[in-house]
Design a protein around this nucleic acid. Structure first.
Lengths: 190, 190
DNA sequence: CACCTATGTTAGTAATCATTAACATCACCG
DNA sequence: CGGTGATGTTAATGATTACTAACATAGGTG
């Protein structure tokens, strides 16, 4: 009902979209659902985004960019590979615990993207994985890059499991558990 | 074009459905897609299943039942908790590597089920998780059940990551990697 | 104040899709 | 061989839904 020149509405929509997509899947959410979630009707969304697909694209690109940027920042601050791995683990775990909806959408909805958006997201994801692989390559020089890449994907599966285990475990304990499990899985003997 | 009294068609449909649901999601697959995948037209499916929802239900119930039954069989044959965990890990890994489509559908499509089917699947899943928790409780008596449950979910996330890492790693090497990572994550110090 | 832009609203529209109807055909059984 | 049941086919049908059109309004700015 009001004309607010702020871009606040746009951000609201993205947050609501992530939430709804996480809960019902991209195809299970209608434009009207999205409008209702931000207090307008469905078609109002077309004032902010060209369409539903573009909306999902924004959500996914933002998530991947955020993870990748966070990774870069952490690595810049790390003193050695051991420390770097700790920081990456804690950073990813914080993200997964604080934004379960984003994590869920991130690994379920790649297939509903425009080819262009999919390529963008894939590139960002690959970059983030390579940050981890680089650190692990320092820690485990005997392992091949491809084994390390598979290890990283497996570790992400572990760390991203929190949306599945709406547990009785409490955030801090969960963070510690995931950290211990993730580190043990990645650097087994050492 | 033929009247085959065998139940083969029915099984074909379930296999094709699992594959298509894994690739495009339940809502991204049409009845006509399913028919085409088994060499008929869409409406022919209604001779075998009451509807699309029931089809997904069959797929998910079958997966959960298979995992749970496999778990029971393995535990019956295990000599001690250590051996039991090894068997559970290897069994789950074999399933994940051999049936990536089933794994994918299994943890994405719960939300598209009838309440009745959802309850059935949940019960079976819970049973399977409790098999793992029971074994871990023997190995790690100091940990609470709820921490163990969260650990099991995290381990599943790790083991089920293979569909995400269509890697260059080869089945056997991948199985060994997942085994080592899973075991290390679950029984860290011991 | 007059206007323009940003943002909404309600009422289409055209496509998609699950499901049903009406009608065929084959294989087997008496 | 004629009927019956299992299995298919094509052609509706009705619901859902992304997106568009036409029309409103509020607030800042000249």
């Amino acid at each position: 009902m009001v004309a607010r020149p702020t871009g606040g509405r746009r951000a609201d929509i993205l947050v609501a979209a992530a939430e709804l997509f996480a809960e019902h899947g991209y195809r299970g959410v209608t434009i009207d659902d999205l409008g209702r979630a931000v207090g307008t009707t469905g078609p109002a969304l077309y004032r902010h985004f060209p369409g539903k697909e573009a909306l999902l694209g924004q959500v996914l690109v933002e998530i991947s960019a955020r993870l990748s940027r966070q990774g870069e920042e952490l690595l810049a601050r790390a003193v050695g590979p051991d420390h770097a791995l700790d920081l990456l683990l804690r950073g990813h775990i914080a993200f997964a615990l604080d934004e379960p909806a984003l994590i869920t959408v991130h690994d379920r909805e790649l297939g509903n993207l425009t080819p262009e958006d999919r390529a963008r997201v894939r590139r960002l994801q690959r970059g983030y994985v390579e940050q981890w692989v680089g650190v692990l390559a320092d820690l485990l020089p005997e392992e091949s890059r491809s084994v390390l890449r598979a290890s990283v994907h497996a570790a992400f599966g572990l760390l991203n499991s929190t949306p599945h285990s709406r547990g009785t475990v409490g955030r801090e304990a969960m963070a510690e558990l995931l950290f211990a499990m993730g580190r043990a899985a990645l650097v087994r003997d050492r």
